[in-house]
């Protein structure tokens, strides 16, 4: 035998998934039944009902409504802007979280509290505030105008509004993970010759990634569903800066209930697929990184 005993405390192989694996918590049946009933009542029944109503219009009309250029463009704007905003937040939200966790400076508490403002504000307040500065007569808007482009009333404005509402999602999901990072791991990387950048890319980022993806998913989902802060700054110009939720409201105002329901159902479908995709991505990074 070798000189060093391998005190073999190795994790047992993953147990097969079993629906009724023995658990120490009592009342599984009751709790599970309650969960199902609750989810049905709150989520499944209303959404299912809407989908059924949409099915009433028939397959051909469903697609005709959904694939109309104006509707397609609204989808493009809604999901595109939400994704862009979520990715922008991924970078800058990470920086904000990093600064809040790693540095001690006067005013840190204040900044910390400010991060949560987009959570707390009614979104219409945010919309009005943002429009006021980004409109061509607002002071940032005027600068942009002088430089030859517009922010408010274009998709850029929408992205800015969504960056605003999405920021806390990234910061607050990444923050605890950053706090838990072991400073010694970074020191180990440094003593092995890694630069700050290599340490960040190879050691820190993989540790943060699962949380970062969760934050991006939340910010993205929020962005897709956002209404209040967007409608002011977007200007809602059809085929330019019109988002899907607004289109639905517009249809309702024209008493086109069928159209509204169809678009809403399509939106739900796409959102669900995207969240599913993000979920898989998360599981994949977790299984790779957080063993």
């Amino acid at each position: 035998m070798t000189a060093v005993a391998s005190g073999a405390t190795v994790r047992p192989a993953k147990r097969g998934w079993s629906f009724l694996a023995p658990t120490i918590l009592p009342g599984f049946g009751t709790a599970f039944g309650f969960t199902l009933a609750y989810l049905c009542l709150i989520v499944l029944i209303p959404l299912g009902h809407m989908a059924l109503r949409a099915a009433d219009v028939g397959w051909d009309r469903f697609w005709a409504i959904t694939l109309a250029p104006r509707v397609l463009h609204a989808f493009y704007v809604s999901f595109g802007c939400a994704l862009a905003a979520a990715l922008i937040n991924a970078v800058f939200g990470l920086v904000v979280a990093w600064v809040l966790v790693r540095y001690r400076f006067p005013g840190r508490r204040l900044i910390d509290a400010m991060v949560d403002l987009p959570f707390a504000l009614p979104t219409s307040v945010a919309g009005i505030a943002l429009t006021a500065i980004y409109a061509p007569n607002g002071w940032i808007g005027a600068l942009a105008k002088a430089a030859g482009f517009k922010i408010a009333f274009t998709p850029i404005g929408i992205v800015i509004a969504l960056v605003f509402v999405g920021l806390p999602f990234i910061v607050r999901t990444v923050e605890p993970v950053l706090q838990d990072l072991d400073a010694e791991v970074e020191e180990a990387a440094a003593s092995l010759g890694a630069t700050r950048w290599q340490t960040f890319i190879k050691v820190l980022l993989p540790a943060i990634l699962p949380a970062l993806i969760t934050g991006v998913a939340l910010a993205f989902a929020r962005g897709v569903g956002e209404y209040g802060s967007v409608i002011f700054i977007a200007g809602n110009i059809p085929a330019v800066s019109e988002i899907v939720p607004l289109l639905i409201v517009a249809r309702l105002e024209q008493y086109d209930y069928a159209g509204a329901t169809v678009i809403a159902t399509a939106m739900m479908g796409v959102s669900f697929l995207m969240l599913l995709g993000i979920n898989f991505l998360q599981r994949w990074t977790r299984s790779r990184h957080a063993r």
């Binding site: 072991d182 010694e184 791991v185 020191e187 180990a188 990387a189 190879k202 050691v203 993989p206 540790a207 790779r288 990184h289 957080a290 063993r291």
Partner: peptide, 8 residues
């Protein structure tokens, strides 16, 4: 002291 291995 606590090894500081790269967990991932």
């Amino acid at each position: 002291q606590h090894y500081a291995l790269f967990r991932h």
